[in-house]
Design a protein around this nucleic acid. Structure first.
Length: 551
RNA sequence: UGGGGCGUCGCCAAGCUGGUCUAAGGCACCGGAUUUUGAUUCCGGCAUUCCUAGGUUCGAAUCCUAGCGCCCCAGCCA
């Protein structure tokens, strides 16, 4: 960790409170190796917020030579589905190359959890409450008033045990009873006022089927899951901070009873990711899919990992992002530009360059013979000769970008306009000699001695450099341009959709794109794109200081 | 209102066993150099100030006290 080396800042992992905590635990010998876990509930697709957690947990494990489990927190059969399990495994595999694809399930520990419940009952630490949900709520008290004990709170361990067994055996209706911890109804921390441990719920579980009719609550199940897996550092988000006293209470009781061994897992909370212009509420995400605002969970505009993948965002970019934003307990909003910058940075290194004219305008080179053609040579990457070259056919009629021509140029515009010279990138320098408003054709003459790669190439200096595609050789393709789904900077509640989040264009491409089997490509002067289905999707634009200046 | 957290540049975020802090780094922004992508790269600028007010100290972003602000908790959800 060379946090102080500014040259390596971007790759260097910087200090944060969880790393320090782990280092202290390792140094003191409290744990000999670390073990973390990523515990999603399979009730939706993974999103950008989960990426932070996944990368934190798997990243820390890798960094300190430990391991990390993917574990499904499947304790509520009413909301969980196999489809989500599958998509989650898929996304984690994509994001984390070292992940072996093996998943663990809380539901595999149901027997042990139940055994722990019986122990808590017999040791007087839990009881069966038969109040209605409404009474329980009323008797919990509020922020100012302590709760009052349930009339069932003093049932004997024997009575509690037989009731608990009857609950498990299905002798009681849903909601008739609930198992609660016996802690204190007067605790200033409401989470400690005898929290519910088990509820009766006749629902078919996606893995255990109808074997159970009682299911453990998250509060109760999670600490046990961690302990069973010998997790050392259980990382979760800030809203679980108030739950930590119960987490520790439970684990210590079970350890006292010999059901668990030390060292016990430690819960550590950090701030969840909030990204500007991105909405990460599962409820709203589901709504976007159901309302068909987007084309499914993996729509490239969706902030899901499945969507990010189709959009062309890369795992490496995510890794840089996670490292860059750090980890803290500060409730913060990360600017979307940080995310985009991480992706650009990675894509710049790996993407081959190609020409694509997105908004075509015809250019005719009057002094170039009809029927003649040449092959221009162009590197696949300006700084990586090892990535090779390709050739681009050149002819008299070309497609150029509409925005690369202005009949009446605005100040500082140095692209094509009548009388101005510009280089056709990797080709010739041309001079614009006219524009026909009726046919919409720009005419120019080329300077034969200025061909790229020849000795005369630099005989004429020009400021502008534009890309082009030969009309006769052009390939046609659909290009999808995505923009943010939400207009608001911090879309927390209801959604405020951007009507222009998807634009489809008919573009002209240089022929070498036809058989290209590329993960990511840069269309020069436009941005990074990914080949998706029968066209290309724009992942992210290039930085554009001209656009910023014109704004 | 009781409890739990958090407050360092427009946005993140180091720093927190007090001095090397007239406070790192990134994003954004503003210059300028190089450039056959108005891209990349490079160089420079960007908090005498660390929520506020007191205090301790030779010395405080770092310690103490009192305020102020924001977030979370009253599901048989996670």
């Amino acid at each position: 960790m060379n946090a102080k080396n500014p040259k390596n800042q971007d790759v260097a992992s910087h200090s944060h409170f969880i790393r320090r905590r782990i280092e202290a635990d390792l140094a003191s010998g409290r744990v000999k190796a670390i073990k973390t876990r990523f515990p999603p509930e399979p009730n939706g697709y993974l999103h950008l917020g989960h990426a932070k957690s996944i990368l934190l947990n798997f990243g820390l494990a890798k960094e300190y030579g430990g391991t990390c489990n993917l574990r499904f927190d499947d304790t509520n059969p009413e909301r969980e589905e196999q489809e989500y399990v599958d998509s989650i495994i898929e996304s984690v595999k994509w994001l984390v190359p070292e992940f072996d694809g093996k998943a663990l399930y809380a539901s595999d520990y149901f027997d042990f959890m139940y055994q722990c419940a019986e122990y808590l009952v017999t040791s007087g630490n839990a009881y069966v409450d038969s109040q209605s949900a409404e009474d329980m709520k009323r008797n919990r008290g509020d922020f100012t008033r302590p709760g009052v004990d349930s009339p069932y709170r003093s049932r004997s361990p024997e009575e509690n045990l037989s009731l608990l067994r009857e609950m498990r055996e299905g002798k009681h209706a849903d909601g008739a009873h609930v198992l609660r911890a016996r802690i204190s109804m007067a605790s200033p921390n409401i989470n400690m006022r005898d929290p519910a441990l088990y509820r009766i719920k006749r629902a078919t579980h996606h893995r255990t089927g109808d074997r159970w009719c009682i299911y453990p609550m998250y509060t109760y199940a999670h600490p046990i899951e961690d302990a069973v897996e010998k997790i050392t550092h259980s990382l979760c988000t800030l809203e679980f901070e108030d739950q930590r006293p119960f987490y520790d209470w439970l684990l210590n009781k079970l350890a006292d009873g010999g059901l668990l061994q030390h060292p016990l897992p430690q819960q550590i909370e950090f701030a969840r990711l909030q990204l500007t212009h991105v909405m990460l509420s599962k409820r709203l995400l589901i709504k976007l899919v159901e309302d068909k605002v987007v084309d499914g969970w993996d729509d490239p505009r969706m902030p899901t990992l499945a969507g990010a993948r189709r959009r062309g965002y890369t795992p490496e970019g995510f890794r840089r992002f996670a490292e860059r934003i750090g980890v803290s307990k500060e409730n913060s909003w990360i600017d979307y530009s940080v995310f985009e910058d991480c992706m650009r940075q990675h894509l710049d290194e790996v993407a081959q360059r190609r020409f694509a004219v997105l908004d075509p305008l015809k250019l005719v080179i009057e002094n170039y013979p009809e029927g003649q053609e040449e092959l221009m040579e162009a590197p696949n990457h300006p700084k990586k000769p090892q990535m090779g070259k390709r050739t681009i056919p050149f002819s008299r009629e070309l497609w150029i970008e509409r925005e690369d021509f202005q009949e009446l140029p605005e100040p500082k515009y140095f692209r094509l306009y009548p009388g101005n010279k510009v280089r056709l990138r990797f080709g010739y320098v041309i001079e614009c000699i006219g524009y026909d408003k009726v046919t919409n054709i720009v005419s120019a003459k080329y300077l034969p001695e200025t061909k790229s790669g020849t000795s005369g190439a630099d005989s004429i200096q020009v400021k502008g450099n534009i890309h082009w595609v030969s009309v006769r050789h052009a390939r046609d393709a659909e290009i999808r341009i995505y923009d943010r789904l939400f207009k608001t900077e911090k879309p927390e509640g209801q959604y405020d959709l951007n009507a222009d989040s998807l634009k489809k264009l008919r573009a002209r491409l240089e022929p070498s794109l036809e058989n290209a089997d590329m993960q990511a490509v840069q269309f020069e002067r436009h941005g990074y794109f990914i080949s998706d289905r029968d066209g290309f999707s724009r992942t992210v634009t290039l930085r554009d200081s001209w656009a910023t200046a014109t704004r």
